Each structure stands twice: as structure tokens, then as C-alpha cells.
Amino acid sequence: MNLMSPQLLLGLLFLPLILFLFYRKNVQAKATFSHLFKVFFSPKGIELKKQEKKQASLPWLFLASSILFFIALSRPQWGKSEVELLESNIDYLVALDVSKSMLAEDIVPTRLDRAKLLATNFISKLHGERVGLLAFTKNAFIEAPLSTDYELLEEILTELSPNDFPNEGTNFAAMLDEALQIFSSNEKAKNMLILLSDGEDHGGGWQQKLAEFKKESIQVLSIGIGASHGAVIRNPNGSLYRDYKGQPIVTIFNPASLEFIARSTGGVYIQADKYFDISTVVEGMIKNPGYTKRKEKMKTHAEKYTYFLLPALILALASFLFEFPLYENREVKLGSKDKS
């Protein structure tokens, strides 16, 4: 038998200590084990009956239940079981523009919130594929490496905010460089960059980097987040961002740059002025030769904790019924005296 969490068995050491303290505390009253339960849960108080000669009986059912419960927590395993794994030869990297222009409200509720919603929905539908998260403004930051920990990725994605990044502006060149570095050390046959941005770029020099993407067969799915008309940008407190002249800053949606990135890498461009499912677009792209997904069965140790947990629950119920008998409660009225 193999235990996945053997350290949890140390909890058994507390059982003798609990019993010792309980009996020591009640040595004068010779209280039975049931009083421990009644002291905590009785609203009216307990009449502890002294037993001069009769010793308190050990709660064998409670002890047995506790032992089995801790064994179940340690996750015992034996035998073999087959687990079906879903493996893909493609990895995804989500690149999210978190510049302040993404706070514009020409897309409801904001450009950034729409991008997060699309990316979160895509990640939630993955099964076995690895995905990473890259946030970029003037610089690019790896928020999560390639992994299948989808819950963690969604949590990180939800918390991203422009206020968490020191540099303003947008630099596609820094984002593309970071994506190339991530994919260059990747052993998977195919890689796809999913870019969510409003298309504004303040750096330049990113066009030359697309040749390397095509050489490495990295397709880009460009998703334009914005509307054709310009929009002002609001602070979290509701005030407008202004330039050095005090005029409200207007951000202009620029789909041309995103279309160029997608076209240069053999990818696809989609404008997210209306909600759509990224997974549907990706499925159409990965039908090309070279993209595969296979199921593999792997033998592993079989989990057997239920063999101990079920008896532990039954014994706990029996202990409740037989080792915690009901005692007659007595109300004590303030100001009253006992009559002899």
C-alpha cells in the first residue's frame, strides 16, 4: 500500500492527548465521554452525575472512526488503474494588451474586460493543451508559463490591470520578442499566439520580427478589441486621462496592424466588436495538417481512500448514537434556591 500524504497520519498522535486532557479535567466528576459532546452543544446546561466507583468508558467507536478518517486523509493507494490523458502537439500563448488605452469604453464594458472574457472562455474549454499568459504594455511580462493549470491561469487573467504595470504605451516588438523566446524553447510541433489588443503601437520596428514567426511556423490569431470610432480613457475613479495640455486623451482603434500580423504569419484576424468564441476559430485553424490531438491511457496507482472513509463515517454515526447518550437537562433559574 502506498500513502500519498503520509504526514497526515501524525494527526493520530492528538487522540491520546485529547483523551488524557478530557479524563484529567473530569476526574472528580468521573464524567463519561458523552459529557464532552453535551458541554459544546447543549443550550441548557448539563447535569454531571458523580460516579464514585464507576470509571468512564473509553469511546471505542469514536477512536476507531478517527483512526480510519486519518488513514483516508493520507490517500492510500494500491493496485493499478488506467487514466485517459488527452495530449496535443500544439501549445497556445495568450498575449493580452494591458495598456491604459484598453480601458476605453467603446466596447462594453471596456476593451480590457472584453479581452479578458474572451480569453477566459477560451482557456476554460481547453482539454490537455498547454497555454501560457503574456501581458504587455511598453514591455512584455510573462504572467504564467506554458501549463495545463487552467484555474490558475483564469485567476491571474482576471486580476490583470494597467495599474499593475509601470510603463505606459504599447510595444508590439517587445511582445513578439518575448513570445518568440517562449516558443523557441518549446518542443511541441506547433505553436499559436493569440493576440488581444486594440492595435495601437508606440514602439515600431515589429514588422521585421514577423519573418521569424513564419520561419518557426508560429501562427497568430489576432483579435481586435475596439470600435471604429475613437474613445476617451477613464481612470478607475471615473475621471478622464488627459494630455499635457489638459485635453482628454482619445484612443483610436487600429485594426490594420493586427491584420498585418495575422496575414504575415498565416493566421487569422477577428474583430471583437461583438462577442464570439475563440475556440471555434482555433478549431478551424488547427484542422490544418500537422495539428493533432491524441488520447493516451496511463496506468497509475488506484485511489482507495473510500475504503476507509465510508467505515469512518458509519462508526462516527454509531459513536454519536451510542457513546453520546442523551442526559436529562436541568434549567437553572437565577435567584432560586434548592429545597432540601
Rank of each mutant, 00 (worst) to 15 (best):
M285S: 06
F308G: 03
D91G: 03
G45I: 12
N89K: 09
M102L: 03
N89F: 03
S184D: 09
L118D: 03
L180G: 04
E331W: 09
D277I: 12
F62S: 15
L68C: 09
T280W: 12
E84G: 02
Q55S: 10
L96D: 06
V282G: 03
L3N: 01
L19W: 00
I107Q: 04
P311I: 02
V268S: 06
L321C: 08
D97L: 01
P109W: 04
S161G: 03
K49R: 15
F37M: 05
I67N: 08
H202D: 14
T110N: 14
Q7S: 15
K274P: 08
G266K: 09
S184I: 04
E159Y: 10
A72N: 04
F141N: 14
S74I: 03
L103Y: 01
G266N: 11
Q208C: 02
I90N: 13
K293Q: 14
A135M: 08
Y307F: 11
G238K: 06
L193G: 00
T300C: 06
E296P: 00
L85N: 11
I223S: 07
I225M: 13
I233E: 05
E143H: 05
L103R: 15
I123K: 02
L133W: 05
I270W: 10
D177N: 11
V39N: 11
A56Y: 01
L21C: 13
R114W: 00
L3D: 02
D164H: 10
N163S: 07
P248Q: 07
S279H: 10
H202C: 12
K214C: 02
L118K: 05
D198Q: 04
D177V: 09
A104M: 05
D149F: 03
P145R: 08
T170M: 02
E323K: 01
G128H: 06
Y92I: 04
A29C: 06
F14I: 13
D149S: 02
A29V: 06
L21V: 11
T306D: 09
Y327C: 03
P311V: 00
V281K: 14
G128I: 04
P145D: 02
K49C: 06
I71W: 01
I156R: 09
I278P: 01
T120F: 11
I123C: 05
K125Q: 14
R234T: 04
N139D: 11
L334N: 13
G169H: 10
F40K: 10
F183P: 02
H229I: 04
P59I: 08
I46H: 00
F165V: 01
L10W: 13
E323W: 01
Y92S: 03
R234N: 06
L13R: 04
R242C: 07
L157H: 06
S222H: 03
D198S: 04
G290L: 00
S228V: 07
R242T: 12
N139A: 09
L152C: 06
L176F: 15
N191Y: 01
Y269A: 06
A144N: 11
R114Q: 03
Q77E: 14
P248C: 05
M4D: 10
Q208A: 12
L321T: 13
F213C: 02
K116S: 02
A72R: 14
S34D: 14
S239H: 03
Y307W: 14
Q271T: 07
G204A: 13
S88Q: 11
F260M: 09
P76S: 05
E331S: 02
V250D: 07
V282D: 05
Y327P: 07
V108C: 01
I218D: 07
A29T: 10
F324Y: 00
D277Q: 15
S257Y: 07
K25W: 12
D149H: 01
